[in-house]
Design a protein around this nucleic acid. Structure first.
Lengths: 205, 205
DNA sequence: GTCTATATCGGGATAGAC
DNA sequence: GTCTATCCCGATATAGAC
């Protein structure tokens, strides 16, 4: 329960986010973070005792940004088709704003799996709720019978993976490193992915 | 064009693979590689001049393992449904054997995007060939009209992402860290993903 | 709170004996 | 080819002045 963040603290956190996102924990240098923040190394330690503590703060914030979106869109009272569309749009739009998050999170997840236990709890993610919602849709004949767990993994995969694989996609399909092209590709994906999923699941009368 | 790899060289490469896969480039320590190989640091430098050179060797090998599988399965003469099934089974089976590769590759890709240019060329991946094949299937009315590039990204996402997200999937869906459960999950995925894709695309008469 | 200077250590790389 | 000893830089962290 933070009371008030000083200006300097915010500047440090932003700089740290920048560097950690780009380089990962091991690749990041306290010196670079200090440079980006326009201060010196000693001050970093004054605010956050260690590199690890500083990282922790960044990681938690990034993680909490991704998880609640899932619950939010997936547990609303819309019908299945609307729910999927809303979720995909929502999720891809969020990631477009912070495209480095996926690889950052995935990497840290594998480097230090234990850390997620705590963060997941704090994020308040209840996969059972989503699974139950999907099961109801299946029972009601809205979508065909699939394994809800795999369906969830499928949906999330389709949204997140392209961000993590950005350099290959650019090189293979977009030829040009122009960031605008990748952005266009992602915008196309929103309808493309929604349709892909809906077409696979919706039971036509 | 390697003529003959000495025994020691192989031992080093295996040890390096182990450590680099687990820790990534920045996190890996030459000392740890030496320990795993049962030799000393100096010998690493004797065989591979630098950490970077050693990494390069590992990375290239890992990358070449993933890419050709895509071409191979996607350019055969089977019909669409068989082709997809073969590809998914093939791909997931390959990754089950070396489940650390996805996060390793993705991470290095983002940390050092330039490296892939060379490796991609050597791997001989021609995405146009796959795209053309899909376009033909669309023209012949085998599958509905979708953007082939997105379809390829979709298929690959569904295969690779779960490996990169392994710790979350375990924690959220499998509760138990028992590796066997994750393995079961992956085996289920083969048919689940195939059906997911085919149901979305195949045009029913 | 912010700085400079410095302690301390770890890690990649090399020299040189065997 | 393989080892021990060592160099040396770079990185985290701290001491202490302002």
């Amino acid at each position: 329960m933070k009371v008030k963040e000083s200006e300097t603290e915010k500047i440090i956190l932003n700089a740290a986010k920048d560097v950690f996102f780009r380089k990962g924990y091991d690749g990041a240098r306290m010196q670079e973070i200090a440079d980006v923040a326009g201060i010196n190394k000693a001050l970093l330690h004054y605010y956050f005792r260690s590199k690890d503590k500083l990282f922790e703060a960044i990681f938690e914030e990034a993680f909490k940004k991704l998880i609640p979106k899932i619950v939010e869109s997936m547990t609303s009272e819309m019908n299945f088709e609307e729910k999927i569309k809303k979720f995909i749009n929502n999720y891809i739009d969020t990631l477009i704003e912070v495209p480095q998050i996926p690889i950052f999170i995935l990497n840290e997840l594998n480097r230090n799996p234990d850390r997620i236990i705590g963060v997941l709890k704090k994020a308040g993610l209840k996969p059972e709720v989503i699974v139950e919602g999907l099961q109801r849709d299946i029972e009601n004949g809205v979508i065909r019978a699939v394994n809800p767990k795999h369906l969830i993994v499928n949906i999330v995969s389709l949204c997140i993976f392209p961000f993590a694989a950005k350099p290959i996609i650019q090189k293979l399909f977009l030829k040009d490193d122009n960031p605008k092209l990748f952005y266009e590709f992602l915008k196309e994906r929103k309808s493309e992915v929604s349709n892909f999923i809906i077409n696979s699941l919706i039971v036509k009368p």
